[in-house]
Every structure is written in C-alpha cells, then in structure tokens.
Simulated scan of single mutants.
Amino acid sequence: MRTEAAAQVRGATLAVGLLTCLAMVAFAANSLLTRAALQTTGIDAASFTAIRVASGAATLLAILRLQGGRLERTRTGWLSALLLFAYVAAFTFAYRGIGTGAGALVLFACAQLLMISYGLSRGERASPWGLLLALGGLAVFLAPSASAPPLLPAALMALAGFAWGGFSLLGKASGAPIANTATSFLLAVPLAAVLVLAAWLTGPGGLRPDPAGVACALVSGSITSGLGYAVWYWVRTRMTAIGAGAVQLSVPVISALLGVLLLGEHVTARSALSGLATLGGVAWVTLTARKA
C-alpha cells in the first residue's frame, strides 16, 4: 500500500512539473508568436489583438462548458476586461519594435513589481535589497544604449505589464479563475472591436488581415492563451504562492532563447546581465516575502 501511495505521489508531482513547464512555454510562445507575426507577416497590430481576444474567449468558453461551469458576474468584471484588453493591445503594439526576450522581461518585471508594491502596501515584508536589485537591473536594461530597446515600445510593454499585474491582482482571490478569465475575455471582445474600427477609420491600409498573421493570432489566442491559462490555473492550485511566483522567472529566459533560435535575434552581454539582475531581484523579493 505504501509503495502504491508513494508511486501515486511521484506520478502527481511529475504531472504538475511537466504541465508547469508546458504553461511557461505557452506564455513565452505568446511573445514569440506576436513578435513573429508583426515582423514576418503583413498583419496589423489591431487585427492581431482582436483575433487573439476573440479566439481566447471562444476557447475559454468551450473549456468552461466542458467543465460544466458558467460565466462569473463580479463587481470588477468590466475593470478586469479593460485591464485584460489594455494588456493584450499594449503587448501587441509594443512588439512592433522590441525584441522577443526584451519585451517579455519588461512585461514580467513590471507586472511583478506592481504586485510586489501592492503587497508591501498591504503590510507584507520582503528584502529591500532584492527590490533595489530588480529596479536597478531594469533601469540599466532600459537605459539609452546601442542595445537598449526603443523607448516607445518599452513604455507600451511596461503598460502591458502593469495592466497584466492589475488583472492578476483582481483575479487572485477568485475561486473560479477560468470562469472569471473567460468572462473578462468575452467582455474585452467589444473593446477589441472598437480598436479595429479605429484602425479601419485611419485609412485603407489600417487593417491588414494577412493569412499567416491571422494564423499566429489564432494560435496565440486559442492555444497559448486559452489552453495555456487553463493549464496554468490547474497547476497553480497545486503550488505554493512563492513557487508560482518563482517559476514565472523562466518565461523571459525561454522567450529570449526562442527569439534567438527561431527569429535570429541577438542578445548582448549588457542586456543579458541586466536582465538576469532584474530577474534575480524579483526572485529575491519573492522568496523573502512574508506577511507583517
């Protein structure tokens, strides 16, 4: 009996580990797909945003129906949808001018720093040296230099990070994360439609639904967002809060590697060192965080 129970525990642990890796690769693939679509196909950012949101909503609704669940109506529903839309739109427009790994680093760092700041304001405590290391590394990474990302794309990605951090905080206490996320995606669809309309009104060239770009957007919305979030929420309930925060440190690294291997992007020593300092600082804060 003990041997059988131990084998079941090992099997469950292995499943959690493998699915966690799959979720992190899915998150990194969002960066790769968006960057690839905007750099190697003719699709515009507005169309990509709308297709990603709509396909993500459809996939999450299908998952919810298979689970026998239903959409959740909350007081923060429209605010969550607005933050989700701001994240997807700013994320997409930013990747017109920032590298895959650089964009993921700025996104992740800003999202985590917002959530850390919220925790500190609520009385939580963490290492101030870790926070200084994270902020210093990010400042060096973004400082003007030959290897620094352009200011506007970096600012848009920072906005996306803050929006994602806010969205995550709103959904943190939810007892039905997939239902709430599906609701947010669904409510974000009309916001994405307004963005498409605005792009169409700018002129005939405002919308360019390139077939290859549409395919990337569909994969990003349905698989690496919809299915990726579903997998992540499953493993998240089986991990500690510290473990969940620490494992996400892998996303910018995976994104950078995918950008180098598949898109031929380059990472300078300065960018790599400052990026590692940022991630190390966030890890330091995450691992030392405690309630007052």
Rank of each mutant, 00 (worst) to 15 (best):
Gly68Phe: 09
Val25His: 09
Leu33Asn: 09
Ala12Cys: 05
Ile63Asp: 01
Asp44Cys: 09
Ala46Ile: 13
Ala36Gly: 12
Ala15Thr: 13
Thr59Gln: 10
Cys21Val: 14
Gly68Arg: 11
Gln8Ser: 11
Thr20Lys: 14
Leu32Val: 12
Leu14Cys: 07
Leu64Ile: 02
Ile43Pro: 03
Ala29Trp: 02
Thr13Gly: 14
Ala23Pro: 07
Leu33Ser: 05
Ile51Lys: 05
Val25Ala: 10
Phe48Leu: 15
Cys21Gln: 13
Gln8Asp: 15
Arg52Lys: 15
Arg65Asn: 06
Ala58Phe: 00
Leu18Pro: 12
Leu18Cys: 11
Ala28Ile: 00
Leu60Trp: 04
Leu66Asp: 00
Thr41Asn: 12
Ala23Leu: 06
Ile43Ala: 03
Arg35Phe: 06
Ala37Trp: 03
Gly68His: 12
Ala58Trp: 00
Ala57Val: 03
Leu14Arg: 15
Phe27Asn: 06
Thr59Val: 10
Gly69Tyr: 05
Ala46Asp: 07
Ser55Ala: 04
Gly69Asn: 08
Ala37Gly: 11
Gly56Cys: 00
Ser55Met: 02
Arg10Tyr: 08
Thr41Gln: 11
Ala15His: 13
Gly17Trp: 00
Ala54Met: 04
Leu18Val: 14
Ile51Leu: 10
Leu61Met: 13
Gly69Phe: 04
Leu66Cys: 05
Gly17Glu: 00
Ala46Trp: 13
Gly11His: 07
Gly56Phe: 01
Gln8Tyr: 03
Arg10Val: 12
Ala12Leu: 05
Thr34Ile: 08
Ala57Thr: 05
Ala23His: 10
Thr20Arg: 13
Ser47Lys: 14
Thr59Ser: 14
Gln39Pro: 09
Leu19Ser: 13
Ala26Phe: 05
Thr34Met: 07
Ala54Leu: 04
Val25Gln: 08
Ser55His: 02
Ser47Ala: 12
Val16Asn: 15
Arg10Met: 11
Thr59His: 04
Phe27Ser: 07
Thr49Trp: 04
Thr34Ala: 10
Leu38Asp: 04
Gly68Lys: 08
